[in-house]
């Protein structure tokens, strides 16, 4: 069974607390993504699971085994590194076979397994080459093949796509998704790219400053962010936050009336750009805003608008006629408005 359980893991580097008591459970065969800005501790957490760092406090379990103090080789893991870490002095074949040789598998079994994963990653043609003769995308494939060849209980990936150019990244992302569906390997995957996280993950753990701030499916996290940080970090453009004031259990923005979670006082209204409908004329249940910038992005028109000193974004149809300085009317789609506490940023 390839589950991972991280219990109250604390990691300090000198005085810096990189992880502040993280709990996390990755189910067998699950694809879980650790997502967060750089320096949030996601890579440290991955390295602790791998055994490349030891936690200052807390325990790590893989399957039912407590592995907190085991070296990487005894943990039943395989890892794909950001810079691939392919051995430059070995051929692709020997790179892929490396883990199997360490396990002293018979030569015939090694040959068969290498062929098998090479076919899976479509690198059969490259087996006799040296890494220096490979492109970035090919190295990436070799690194994944090498990791899968040992049939790990758990696959750990540290920003494996971040060194690829944009087009190749898209291609490899789809490929990885297909691959890991096929192999059903439990995967813990680190990235700072929210699109990558959304597209690959069964569940996402959003991290900030050494803590997991939200854990959930991509849809949950996208539509119900736990706080303004998550809402702002996930989605492009980020979620809009408009300061509003509740009175008598209601929030009123021009013609828009919404029941508020608080009886009275300031609140933040969160709404995603694509959840705002844009109208040229005043509309029932809409509020007014002034256009600052119009960006035709192809599939839609991205509008940057201003209302009472707050800028926010909305998406309109590509054919929508809008000019900077004009006043437009916006109406949130049914059920898409979220409220957040104006100081703590927590969802209400």
């Amino acid at each position: 069974m390839g589950s991972i359980r991280v219990e109250n893991v604390v990691k300090r580097f000198g005085k810096v607390e990189a992880l502040k008591g993280v709990r996390l459970q990755v189910q067998d065969q699950e694809f879980l993504v650790l997502l967060g800005p750089s320096g949030c501790g996601k890579t440290t957490l991955l390295r602790i699971v791998a055994g490349l760092e030891t936690p200052t406090q807390g325990e790590v379990y893989i399957g039912e085994r407590r592995v907190t103090h085991l070296p990487p080789r005894l943990r039943g893991i395989a890892m794909v590194f950001q810079n691939y870490a392919i051995f430059p002095h070995l051929t692709v074949y020997e790179n892929v076979a490396f883990g199997l040789r360490m396990k002293r598998r018979p030569e015939a079994a090694i040959r068969q397994k290498v062929r098998e994963v090479a076919a899976l990653l479509r690198i059969e043609e490259l087996l006799e080459r040296y890494p220096a003769q490979l492109s970035g995308g090919q190295r990436q494939r070799v690194a994944v093949a090498r990791a899968l060849a040992v049939e790990p209980e758990v696959l750990l990936m540290d920003e494996p796509l971040s060194n690829l150019d944009a087009l190749l990244r898209l291609e490899m992302r789809a490929e990885l998704k297909r691959l890991l569906k096929e192999t059903r390997t439990t995967t813990l995957y680190v990235t700072h790219d929210q699109v990558e996280a959304m597209s690959l993950a069964d569940r996402i753990a959003v991290m900030r400053q050494g803590e997991i701030v939200q854990l959930g499916t991509p849809t949950e996290i996208y539509h119900h962010p736990a706080d303004t940080f998550v809402g702002g970090f996930i989605g492009n453009p980020p979620m809009n936050f408009l300061p509003v004031v509740a009175e008598g259990g209601q929030v009123v923005l021009d013609g828009l009336r919404l029941p508020s979670p608080a009886e009275r006082g300031p609140l933040l209204l969160g709404i995603r750009a694509e959840d705002l409908e844009v109208f040229p004329e005043p509309v029932e249940g809409g509020f007014a805003a002034r256009v600052l910038v119009v960006e035709p992005l192809g599939p839609h028109l991205q509008l940057t608008l201003e209302r009472e000193g707050t800028t926010f974004r909305a998406l309109a149809d590509p054919g929508f006629a809008a000019a900077p300085g004009a006043t437009l009317y916006l109406r949130p789609k049914e059920g898409r408005v979220r409220f957040f506490h104006p100081e703590t940023g927590k969802a209400l």
Binding site: A50, G51, L52, P71, P72, R73, I77, A78, M79, F81, Q82, N83, A85, I86, F87, P88, F98, G99, M102, K103, R146, V150, L156
Partner: peptide, 17 residues
């Protein structure tokens, strides 16, 4: 790169190996 060594560790090597 240190990662080469780390990769070797994850693939079943002791530090010496």
């Amino acid at each position: 790169p240190k990662e080469l060594e780390e990769a070797a560790w994850t693939l079943g090597c002791t530090r010496t190996q």
